[in-house]
Design a binder for these strands. Structure first.
Length: 437
RNA sequence: GCGGUCAUAGCUCAGUUGGUUAGAGCACAAGAUUGUGGAUCUUGGGGUCGCGGGUUCGAGUCCCGUUGGCCGCCCCA
C-alpha cells in the first residue's frame, strides 16, 4: 500500500486515461480550428482578487487559495472567464475583430467530489469578444454543437437549452419589479424545475409574498418553449426593449436553423444560470436522458471586461467540462479504446544480430516509423508472441541465418507471410508497405 | 458543510458464532521452448487486511475514532 495518496478529488492519468483525455482535446482543438478560433493559454495561478472582484467573498470558500512567499494572495484558477477577459482587455485595441479565442485548460475548485465533478477538471473554453449582436451567439452555439457531434453524438444524445437573462429583466421590469426583486425572482426560476413552488420560498422571505397575478405572469413566461409562443407573448406586451430582444431571438434561431442545427436547440426560459455576470442569452447543454449534470454552459457577459479593468467590450463564451462529457461518451459507447501499437516489431536472435538490428531500428525511427524490440534476449516463440501482442503490422526478423546472408526477413503479421530483403533495402521495403496499405 | 454506504494482492472479489502461516480468478514474471503467433501446463513475485486505538488467551472478523472512495443534499464560476 502506497504511503502517499493522491490528494482528494485530484486525478492521475495512466497511459490509457491520458489517451482518452487526449482524444477529447484533439477533437475539440480540431473543431475550434475549423471555426476559425485561435488557441491561447494563461497562468494556472492568479491573484485572488481577480475572482473576488467578479463574484464576491463567498466564492473564496471554493477556491484553492493561499498566500505566496511574497505575501501575495493567490488562487488556482477555478474558471477561465476572468483570465481571458484580462488578456483580451489588456490588448483590446490592438486585436483584430472579431476576437475568437479558445483554450483547453485545467481548473481547480475546492468542493466535495461527486459523479462528474472533481476538485480538478479540464474545460474547453471558447469566447467571442467585440460582437454585441446575436452573430456571436450563432457562432458559439454552432461551435458547441459541433464540439459534441465531432465525437459521434447526435441530437438523440444531447440538446442545448437556450434562454435569455435580458428578456427576463425587461419582462419583469414591464411587470413593475425593481432590480433586487428581479434578481430574487431569477433565483427562484433557476430552482423552479427542481423544487416547484418551494423555489419561491427564498423570495418570499426577503420581499414578502409574490402577488398572485405576478406569479402567474412569471410561470406563464416560464412555459414558453418555442419562438412562436414567445412572439405571441411579447406582442401582447409591446415595448421597445422587448421588441429588440425578439429581433435577436429571431436572428439567432433563424441562423441555427439555416445551419441545420435547429433540432439541437430548445427554447427554455427556465435556464437563467446562477452566475451573476451573464447579461443576455444563456445556454446549457444536457444529455437527453437527463441522467448527467450539465455538459456545457455559457452565455453573454457584456460588462465583465470593463469590470475587470478593461475597456467596454461585449463578450459571449461557453465551456465544456471533460468529466461529464467523458461519462456521456462512455455511456454511448463512443469512447474508443486506444492501443499504442508500433508499426514494426523486431525479432532478434542474439547479440550479433542485435547490433545489426540497431542500425535499422534507429534509421526507421528517424524516418518516422514506430519501431519496438525486446530489451532482453528471448526465445523466438516469445518474441513472435510479443510482436503479435504489440499490435505491430510487420515483424523484422534478425536471426543468425539472415545475418549470414546479409538479409532481413520481413513478416506481414496479418497476412502471415514473409519475404527476405537485403539489409540495404529494409527501409525502402517498410516505406513501400506502409504507403501501399 | 450535512447524510447514507463501503475499504482484504495491480484489478474483481471470497474469507464460517472471533481460532493454525489470509485465499481464488484475472493481470504480471519465469520455465517447458536456441527459428515463427493471442493456446496449454508448471512455477514464481506480490498483503502492516486503509490507518490508529480498544475488547479478548486470540481480531481481516466485534467496538470507538480517523482517513479515503462511492451515492445523495448544499453548491456549482
Amino acid at each position: 500500500m502506497a504511503t502517499f495518496q493522491t490528494l482528494p478529488g485530484f486525478r492521475e492519468f495512466y497511459p490509457e486515461d491520458l489517451a482518452r483525455r487526449n482524444h477529447l482535446f484533439r477533437l475539440w482543438r480540431q473543431t475550434a480550428n475549423t471555426f476559425g478560433f485561435a488557441e491561447y493559454d494563461a497562468p494556472v495561478l492568479e491573484p485572488l482578487d481577480l475572482y473576488k472582484a467578479k463574484s464576491g467573498d463567498e466564492i473564496e470558500n471554493q477556491l484553492f487559495s493561499f498566500t505566496d512567499k511574497g505575501g501575495r494572495e493567490v488562487a488556482l484558477r477555478p474558471e477561465m472567464t476572468p483570465t481571458v477577459c484580462r488578456l483580451v482587455g489588456a490588448k483590446a485595441n490592438a486585436l483584430k475583430r472579431p476576437i475568437k479565442w479558445f483554450s483547453i485548460a485545467e481548473f481547480y475548485r475546492y468542493e466535495r467530489m461527486q459523479k462528474g465533478r472533481g476538485r480538478c477538471f479540464f474545460q474547453f473554453n471558447a469566447d467571442i469578444f467585440g460582437e454585441p449582436g446575436p452573430e456571436a451567439e450563432i457562432e458559439l452555439i454552432a461551435l458547441l454543437v459541433q464540439c459534441l457531434c465531432a465525437f459521434g453524438l447526435t441530437d438523440q444524445d444531447f440538446y442545448v437549452r437556450l434562454s435569455d437573462r435580458n428578456l427576463w429583466f425587461y419582462y419583469l421590469e414591464a411587470l413593475g419589479l425593481d432590480e433586487a426583486r428581479t434578481r430574487g425572482v431569477l433565483g427562484a426560476i433557476d430552482r423552479y424545475e427542481k423544487y416547484g413552488d418551494d423555489a419561491f420560498k427564498g423570495y418570499t422571505e426577503t420581499f414578502g409574498p409574490l402577488a398572485p397575478e405576478l406569479k402567474t405572469a412569471i410561470l406563464d413566461f416560464l412555459q414558453i418553449k418555442s419562438l412562436p409562443a414567445l412572439e405571441a407573448k411579447l406582442q401582447t406586451l409591446g415595448g421597445e426593449k422587448l421588441a429588440g430582444r425578439l429581433a435577436d431571438w429571431r436572428k439567432l434561431l433563424g441562423a441555427l436553423d439555416a445551419m441545420g442545427l435547429a433540432r439541437f436547440v430548445e427554447v427554455d426560459l427556465g435556464v437563467v444560470r446562477g452566475l451573476a455576470y451573464y447579461t443576455g442569452f444563456v445556454f446549457e447543454a444536457f444529455d437527453r436522458k437527463g441522467e448527467l449534470r450539465a455538459l456545457a454552459g455559457g452565455g453573454r457577459y457584456d460588462d465583465l471586461v470593463q469590470k475587470l479593468g478593461g475597456p467596454a467590450l461585449p463578450a459571449v463564451g461557453f465551456a465544456i467540462g471533460d468529466m461529464t462529457f467523458a461519462l456521456l461518451l462512455e455511456q454511448r459507447g463512443l469512447m474508443p479504446t486506444f492501443v499504442q501499437a508500433p508499426d514494426v516489431y523486431c525479432v532478434i536472435g542474439g547479440e550479433a544480430e542485435r547490433q545489426a538490428a540497431f542500425g535499422d531500428i534507429h534509421a526507421l525511427r528517424a524516418a518516422g516509423y514506430r519501431v519496438d524490440y525486446p530489451m532482453k534476449e528471448l526465445a523466438f516463440g516469445k518474441q513472435f508472441k510479443a510482436a503479435t501482442e504489440s499490435g505491430a503490422k510487420l515483424a523484422l526478423i534478425y536471426g543468425g541465418d539472415e545475418l549470414a546472408k546479409g538479409v532481413v526477413k520481413i513478416r506481414d503479421l496479418n497476412q502471415r507471410n514473409e519475404v527476405e530483403v537485403p539489409r540495404a533495402q529494409v527501409a525502402a521495403h517498410v516505406r513501400d508497405f506502409f504507403s501501399g496499405s
